[in-house]
Design a protein around this nucleic acid. Sequence first.
DNA 1: ATTTTGTTTTAGAATAATTCTTGATCTCAA
DNA 2: TTGAGATCAAGAATTATTCTAAAACAAAAT
Lengths: 147, 147
Amino acid sequence: MPTPISHETSHEAMTRSGIRLTPQRRHVYESLMATPDHPTALEVFMRAKKGMPSISLATVYNCLDALTEGGVIRQVNCERASSRYCPNLVPHGHFFCKECGAVFDIPLKPSLEASWEVPSGTLVSHAELNLRGTCGSCTQRFKTSKL
Amino acid sequence: MPTPISHETSHEAMTRSGIRLTPQRRHVYESLMATPDHPTALEVFMRAKKGMPSISLATVYNCLDALTEGGVIRQVNCERASSRYCPNLVPHGHFFCKECGAVFDIPLKPSLEASWEVPSGTLVSHAELNLRGTCGSCTQRFKTSKL
DNA sequence: ATTTTGTTTTAGAATAATTCTTGATCTCAA
DNA sequence: TTGAGATCAAGAATTATTCTAAAACAAAAT
Ligand SMILES: [Mn+2]
Ligand SMILES: [Mn+2]
Ligand SMILES: [Zn+2]
Ligand SMILES: [Zn+2]
């Protein structure tokens, strides 16, 4: 059962970011917060329509862009697939299951920052770590079906 | 000046991978090897046309896919931009300059593998590290223009 | 409170990268 | 050499996303 989101929280998150608070942006943000997966814009749209039937896909794209721009959410990309969106602002990586398409947050250890070397003078503003493979339940399922 | 590519080398790389060797695939591969940047499919196409004027963009896409599938080259993605292609098979990350669009290979230290934690049972088959920021020469240029 | 100004929403059109389709051509194992 | 299957090429199609323009809205100014 997802943690209920207080309007205070989403209002705060959005005003903190400097973007104008609109009912659509708030609703898109809360649609995203309501589930811990990493939905695509289309999935957010389908969920958002439930509580706001008049919202359009273009608006969902606009809102997701504005929220991303304002740093309230993150856009997550894997290969060439549709962008996905993540409301978790704690720095983290992503794991993509090749079998079932699930996307998980991956906690990162501080040693990550020390594990690459850029040429001197380079300024790194953003680091992104993506893992691909087979998730625990898919691995389990394969083991079972091979018995 | 780029290291000259022997036909032996590209032939070997491709037959080793199990994909069928064709003149187009060899030519696309060598077009990619000829420069150390990370060209898009369209850029590869424009370069490949010089030595093989009859090649089509669809074929370049097909060849890049086949080579990627065969593990002879790597596809590199940054955000939603066009895919880029990299003939460097040594595991490495990528740095993308926000200012000039340059893409650099980033050597990785062994400590990288230890800097994330996946749930038990998860099998990670591929890790990808992307950095974004300002490259050395762009940083330098900005410093100079601010004097 | 009303007007002004700039922003956001919406629907649909447009775009751009990539993939698909199909007939012709090529490769390679037999 | 030959036939089956793979690949090529040109253009059409797809798909995710962005753009356009008019209407609705929100905040600021009068
Ligand atoms: Mn996430
Ligand atoms: Mn590279
Ligand atoms: Zn899975
Ligand atoms: Zn640069």
